[in-house]
Nucleic acid binder design. Structure first.
Length: 264
DNA sequence: AGCTCTGTTATCTG
DNA sequence: ACAGATAACAGAGC
């Protein structure tokens, strides 16, 4: 489920815990997504620590606690975060629950493809600072995009857009949306783009990222109704541009939805 | 019963 | 070196 804006949305679900002290922690230690944690270490590290800041970057989340504690969470395919009343029953597929003064903060992940990891350091970890600009940031410029393209000319466009080192937060539906909005066939190679087409893709990356942040990230409301978004999920969808049937196929190893005559 | 899936990683092949 | 295909992870939904 979670791409850029979904991750931002879920990260905020833990905001009710800001300013509160950790009084207990439960870990599903058998779960793959918690394999780097130990109950004992977590209890020691979180002793007396309080949550004070929530950071997100692409599909990554970082929760800052006092006492040099940082909890990194990646939601994988099915991860979600919840805030519940203190003492609520654990739910199916809960993997980690932090008990605070009056809230329980839960990381729930049915498929366990996500990841929870602890860091101990006085300030924001170096690797976090070194992450590339997010696609909605002003530092994500046409020149930066062009430099990414320059090194990947023989790469398929669809899988290129899914590269987190270049486009942090972009996932499968966003990549399809970007190519649909820029009217480019997802089967094209990066090196085949004209400079005008490259600029269109760049602009759509920015527009889709900002549009998702302005809708999904706020309250999980859908992006604008004229996006591909609402039509892409099931076979039989109709392209809002051409009113013709959308195509579905596996491109770059991922299910891809596009509009054959609109995108070329 | 069998197939799919908004993610990532390792491995094999060309 | 690069790029694509495939499998693996583990569960839910259709």
């Amino acid at each position: 489920m979670p791409e850029l804006a979904e991750v931002a949305y879920y990260s905020k679900q833990w905001a009710p815990g800001i300013g509160q002290c950790v009084s207990g922690i439960w870990i599903n230690i058998a779960a793959r997504c918690c394999r780097s944690l130990s109950q004992q270490t977590a209890c020691r590290i979180f002793e007396g620590a309080s949550l004070f800041k929530i950071l997100t970057h692409g599909k990554r989340m970082l929760f800052a606690f006092s006492d040099n504690v940082w909890l990194e969470i990646h939601l994988g395919m099915t991860g979600r975060l919840y805030s519940r009343e203190r003492g609520s029953d654990r739910e199916k597929h809960d993997q980690l629950v932090l008990s605070l003064a009056n809230k329980d903060l839960a990381f729930n992940d049915s498929r366990q493809f996500g990841k929870a990891k602890l860091h101990e350091c006085p300030d924001v970890p170096d690797w976090w600072r070194a992450l590339p600009p997010q696609p909605m940031d002003s530092a994500f410029t046409p020149e930066l995009f062009a430099s990414y393209c320059a090194g990947r000319k023989r790469k398929g466009l669809k899988s290129f857009l899914l590269h987190q080192e270049h486009f942090p937060g972009i996932g499968n539906w966003m990549a399809d949306e970007i190519l649909w909005q820029s009217a480019i066939d997802p089967r094209r190679l990066v090196g085949s783009l004209s400079s005008d087409e490259g600029l269109r893709v760049y602009q759509s990356i920015v527009d889709v990222s900002r549009g998702a942040m302005a809708s999904i990230a706020i309250d999980y409301r859908n992006p604008p109704a004229d996006w591909l978004f609402s039509r892409r999920w099931k076979p039989g969808g109709i392209c809002p541009k051409t009113h013709e049937a959308l195509a579905r196929d596996t491109i770059g190893g991922r299910t891809t939805c596009w509009s054959p005559t609109w995108q070329n």
